[in-house]
Simulated scan of single mutants.
Amino acid sequence: MNPEHLELLVTRVMPYGKYKGRLIADLPGHYLNWFASQGFPPGEIGRLLALMHEIDHNGLKSLIEPLRKR
Rank of each mutant, 00 (worst) to 15 (best):
S37H: 07
P66H: 15
G46M: 12
V10E: 00
V13W: 02
I24T: 04
P3V: 07
G29W: 01
E65F: 07
K20Q: 14
G59W: 01
R22T: 11
E44T: 12
H53T: 03
Y16K: 13
N33M: 14
M52S: 05
K20P: 00
H57E: 13
P42K: 12
P41G: 09
W34Q: 08
Y16S: 11
L49Q: 04
A36V: 08
L6Q: 02
A25I: 00
H30E: 14
E54S: 15
G43C: 08
E44C: 07
E54N: 15
Y19V: 09
A36W: 01
I24M: 02
L60G: 15
N2K: 13
L8Y: 01
H57G: 12
A25F: 00
P28G: 04
A50C: 06
Q38F: 07
L9T: 00
P41E: 09
A50S: 12
A25T: 04
R12L: 03
K18T: 15
W34M: 11
P28V: 06
V13E: 14
A36Y: 09
Q38P: 00
E4Q: 07
I24P: 00
F35L: 06
L8T: 00
V10L: 04
M14A: 09
L9D: 02
P28N: 04
G39D: 13
T11M: 05
F40Q: 08
E7H: 03
V13P: 00
Y16G: 08
M52P: 00
A25M: 04
I64P: 02
P66A: 13
